[in-house]
Design a protein around this nucleic acid. Structure first.
Length: 447
DNA sequence: CAGGTC
DNA sequence: GCTGG
């Protein structure tokens, strides 16, 4: 078993935060291990508190992150002739190249965020108030994995999607290797600490499985197996999608990759041919595995933003959300956010996840004085008509008051048109909400 | 109720 | 409407 062949890349957490992006519901495949505190901190890597690992077809990619560095190493099966740990410079180079592509490190996220803040008041407000997570970028995933994951995502939550995808890999693909993150203290020396297999001090080395190809799901036994694994009605979707892929294309994965070269609309059409793939799932695949950076998938969270933060009428989640409203809402958001709107969406989406927000939202040390923002009422379904007054105010002075004033205007118009009902504010809004409003809601029994 | 779809 | 974190 390999050990201690870390290399590192200079990396600011504002450009890439593993802790944020790998838990934000883009990829469902990463394994997270919390590291025990080292006995003594003798080098930078000892400061890392978590390790992340992903099993590729031939190796396990292992990552750790500190305030200044991204540490990486590849672990190969012991049977591989090229040694159990990678000293082979050629193999090492392929790992760093994979990392650069997967995390799209050629894209300057900090620059993008500065652009978004300059063009979108809602975004700049969130940046000022401190409710937007840093280091959230769009991953460039394997299209088949991405397609599989998001077929599983319908009417489902991130935790269960993750467990489903993991169990699929475990039951449909043989293990590549077993591995257990060594304690930091063992890592620091760079020595081999696990020479013998009788070193049973460690309890459970974990088996890592590559993600199974489409052909693994074409057998008739697939559906009952997936059902037994808890895939529910998605079992049939997976099987049918895999069959269509395998029957229509000699190299299914290469076919999916080829969609990258098509215009966005054509690529979306192709994806919609698969069972279990609707507009939302197709858009996720386009954005997160086919390089369509401008695509904004509209899920319940983003629909919530569109309504409450941007005053767009969408007709609510799922039901009532007609195809044309989906498209209009998308184009409006793309108008506000620009050519990288899909990336903007990723930041807002991640920042709205409660289990991630807790990592930066510390109620005792509020970044600014709480200000009053009223929450837009819930919008009842009704046909067509996006709020016409929707627009981004001209640049100029970008004071917080100005931002809030314009939001109040939006709110009033929405109330007049649509009437009563109230939606739960997201954590984004809660941060900038007055204590008074918070108490009011609590009295109503909502929190 | 959850990153919707048939 | 599947189903479990």
């Amino acid at each position: 078993m390999a050990l201690a062949h870390w290399r590192s890349l200079s990396m600011s957490p504002s450009q890439l935060s593993l802790a944020h992006v790998l838990k934000s519901g883009q990829s469902f495949r990463w394994t997270l291990t919390r590291l025990a505190p080292p006995e003594k901190v003798s080098q930078d890597i000892d400061l890392a508190t978590e390790e992340y690992s992903l099993c590729l077809s031939d190796r396990l990619v292992v990552l750790r992150q500190t305030a200044t560095q991204l540490y990486y190493q590849a672990i190969f099966p012991a049977s591989s002739a090229s040694a159990a740990f990678t000293t082979d410079p050629k193999l090492d180079r392929t790992t760093i190249e994979w990392i650069k592509k997967y995390f799209q490190l050629d894209v300057d996220l900090v620059q993008l965020e500065s652009d978004w803040a300059a063009r979108d008041q809602v975004y700049s407000k969130g940046k000022q108030v401190g409710t937007l997570l840093p280091g959230v970028r769009v991953l460039n995933q394997d299209p088949w994995e991405c397609l599989f994951g998001f077929i599983c995502s319908s009417n489902n939550n991130i935790a269960r999607i993750t467990s489903m995808v993991q169990s699929a890999a475990h039951h449909f693909s043989p293990p590549l290797l077993t591995y257990q993150p060594p304690p930091s203290s063992q890592v620091t020396g760079g020595a081999i600490a696990a020479a013998a297999s009788d070193m049973t001090v460690s309890a459970n080395p974990k088996a890592y499985h590559p993600f199974p190809p489409p052909s693994s799901f074409t057998d008739a036994s697939t559906v009952p197996t997936l059902l037994s694994l808890g895939f529910g009605y998605r079992s049939k979707f997976i099987h049918q999608t895999a069959r269509l892929l395998v029957e229509s294309h000699s190299d299914p994965q290469k076919y999916l990759e080829s969609l990258r070269a098509l215009p966005t609309d054509k690529a979306r059409e192709a994806l919609l041919e698969f069972t279990g793939v609707g507009p939302k799932v197709a858009d996720c695949v386009l954005l997160m595995s086919l390089g369509k950076k401008e695509v904004v998938p509209l899920d319940v969270h983003v629909v919530g933003f569109a309504e409450r933060l941007y005053g767009l009428r969408t007709g609510g989640k799922g039901k009532g959300m007609t195809k044309s409203v989906y498209g209009i809402t998308q184009s409006k958001l793309r108008e506000v956010w620009g050519d990288w709107a899909g990336w903007t969406q990723a930041v807002l989406f991640a920042s709205d996840l409660p289990f991630l927000m807790s990592s930066i939202a510390n109620p005792t040390t509020r970044p600014i004085k709480p200000v009053k923002i009223k929450v837009l009422p819930k919008i009842e379904s009704s046909e067509s008509s996006i709020i016409t007054s929707f627009s981004v105010e001209a640049k100029g002075e970008l004071t917080l008051e100005g931002v809030l004033a314009s939001e109040r205007i939006n709110k009033r118009e929405t109330v007049e048109r649509i009437g009563q009902g109230e939606s739960k504010p997201s954590s984004l809004e809660l941060e900038a909400e007055s204590m008074g409003d918070r108490i009011k809601r609590r009295r109503r029994g909502e929190l």
